[in-house]
């Protein structure tokens, strides 16, 4: 902890105190973990019988893998569409024409402020009356995720372009480039590098939010793993929750590591004139009224 702003490098007395504190906390953390273990044990949750389904290939083939595919399918479709949406609306918000800039701004702000589940419900119920009968669970999940995450990404794109040092575009104009050349050849190539970590962390949010599909019976990992699976294997609810929880955490953490790695790479890079765009709150959108992720120049 020598890098901490809070603590000095410990001297002999502090080291003794720290060792003591470590001992106490080991006991404390151990006690908590043991308490949880005993609590589960008392309810028979470690019984081999209810964990057995998870070592059988059939369980994975018939429930977990199809669910995982459902989750990844929705996430992939929504990710592609959200990035497109973000690119279009992010640039539209930077337009010189008020008739493009203002409506784009309103759309982005509104979709960022709507609770995602309400949006998904609405699309789910509205779609059949507009487009005729059919199964709209996938459609509602993907469109809801696209509109919401796309709006967040639009802010990331805007912040990314704005974070490129002013001299860059001025230099572009000075050598006679047009507006679109400046954007295409000077600003975007630098901005995209800067935006990558923020985009990837928003994709983690998107992947996590696919689980909302569970509520409208979209066949995703949560649905097959947490609803169907415990119904087929009686009593396996808690093991199922633990197994699919691990899958979600593993998926999202690998994406998060990608984001941190990209961020570190960007910070090292000397080719770009701007620091990385701060990721939007990894939990969900920032409310209206404050710019997401202003530029950090380091």
């Amino acid at each position: 902890m020598s890098t901490s702003v809070l603590f000095d490098v410990p001297g002999p007395r502090a080291r003794v105190r720290n060792h003591l504190l470590t001992l106490v906390s080991v006991v404390l953390v151990g006690a908590v973990l043991y308490g949880v273990y005993r609590g589960f044990d008392a309810k028979g949750q470690w019984a081999g019988k209810i964990w057995e389904p998870f070592i059988q290939a059939d369980t994975w083939r018939e429930f977990i893998i199809p669910g995982l595919i459902g989750t990844l399918k929705a996430a992939a479709a929504a990710a592609v569409l959200a990035m497109l949406f973000g690119m279009v609306f992010g640039l539209a918000r930077l337009s010189d024409h008020a008739w493009i800039r203002v409506p784009a701004g309103v759309i982005v702000e509104v979709f960022r402020a709507i609770p995602l589940l309400l949006l998904i419900f609405f699309i789910f119920y509205l779609a059949p009356s507009v487009m005729g009968g059919g199964d709209y669970a996938f459609f509602a999940v993907v469109l809801g995720l696209t509109l919401y995450n796309g709006s967040v990404l639009a802010e990331v794109v805007r912040a990314g372009v704005l974070s490129v040092a002013r001299g860059q575009s001025e230099a572009g104009y000075a050598i006679g480039m047009r507006k679109n050349q400046v954007m295409r050849l000077v600003l975007l190539p630098q901005a995209i590098t800067v935006m990558m970590p923020a985009i990837v962390s928003q994709l983690v949010v998107l992947l996590k939010d696919t689980a909302l599909g569970y509520i409208i019976a979209y066949v995703d990992l949560l649905n097959t793993g947490f609803k169907i699976l415990p119904a087929v294997f009686f009593g396996s609810l808690i093991p199922a929750a633990i197994v699919i929880g691990i899958i979600y955490v593993a998926l999202n953490m690998s994406l998060s590591y990608l984001a941190t790695w990209l961020e570190r790479r960007t910070r090292r890079s000397r080719k770009v004139t701007a620091g990385p765009v701060e990721p939007p709150s990894a939990m969900a959108a920032v409310g209206a009224g404050q710019p997401t992720g202003g530029p950090i120049i380091d």
């Binding site: 996590k208 689980a211 909302l212 949560l222 929750a241 929880g245 979600y248 998060s256």
Partner: peptide, 9 residues
């Protein structure tokens, strides 16, 4: 763990 688990779960 918590940050990477869906709230729904």
């Amino acid at each position: 763990v918590v940050r990477n688990t869906p709230l729904t779960l």
